[in-house]
Design a protein around this nucleic acid. Sequence first.
DNA 1: GCTAGATATATAACATGTTATATAACGTTC
DNA 2: GAACGTTATATAACATGTTATATATCTAGC
Lengths: 168, 168
Amino acid sequence: MVEDVVRTLGFLCLGSRLRRIGERLQADTQQVIDEAGLGIQAGQYPFLAAIDRAGPLTIGELAQAVGITQPGATRTIGQLLELGFVDMQPAPDDQRRRLVSLSDKGRELVDHSKATIWPRVAAAVADLCGDLDGPILEQLAAIEDGLAALPLLRRSTVTGPHALSAAQ
Amino acid sequence: MVEDVVRTLGFLCLGSRLRRIGERLQADTQQVIDEAGLGIQAGQYPFLAAIDRAGPLTIGELAQAVGITQPGATRTIGQLLELGFVDMQPAPDDQRRRLVSLSDKGRELVDHSKATIWPRVAAAVADLCGDLDGPILEQLAAIEDGLAALPLLRRSTVTGPHALSAAQ
DNA sequence: GCTAGATATATAACATGTTATATAACGTTC
DNA sequence: GAACGTTATATAACATGTTATATATCTAGC
């Protein structure tokens, strides 16, 4: 059996580890969605949820709401357009901006998801996290806030001389 | 200010959220590595660490050690070969398998990193996680083990009839 | 000994994040 | 009013994960 070094190395590999767990959770969530035959990607749901909650949003606002860069949001909204779940029109007061809203089909999908899949996924993940020794969601919020407040580069608690000179 | 729906939706978007935090942590780690001028990607370090700890490993073993699929490991090892940090030769007893080992240059990088960058990154991340209300590393281990033991699809604590029929 | 199934890796194609850059539109200043 | 800086989005290119498939090698069974 091969040692899981990402797990073993703990804080050193926390970034890789969080991504890994995130991908597995997204893959598992995708299975639940596929079983329901909804024809949507797990990563697309947060966009629909954002519009559902806030009404029509611009590409930039959607990028912020979901926490990715603007080109990433542009691509995913393009996919949702092709799938017919959203509509897009230029903002009346500023033609640079485009407003993305739910189409009838998207509205239907969101209403259905809120009634069925979303509670199912949320409950399954809550079950997975049920025995954890701490409030994982708050802890993740603290990590995100902590990174925003003070990036790693500015955190250094290593005592002694810093070997910042370049290797070889 | 736009609402962060991934944060707001909690367990429903945990997968996206973990990926997001993981990417940010990797990006921050990359900044620390770049400042040290080491010419390596944060995602490549676990491969070197695995070989450092266990000696020469096959592609398949490296994929397992780092927790990604075999084609992903093949690609990253290819990059480390080009950078000159690893060597590769066919296993003497089975020509299907290739054994990846640290080159002299790779050995030098790992020894240097263990003395400088790795403690620095680990300390910075430990600092970031210092005020958390629970042992995050153990919690992540519990999540990974929980997912492996029982995928989301088989977790369902929602009471009442399951709306598994396909939407529209 | 030969064949078929299994195993290990490489490659292709795809998905989804990123950074860099181009283009269009807006607003402020002169 | 024109020009320049800023803002918003689209597109290109890249990075890195995935699944699917191809190729090479090994082993067990007949």
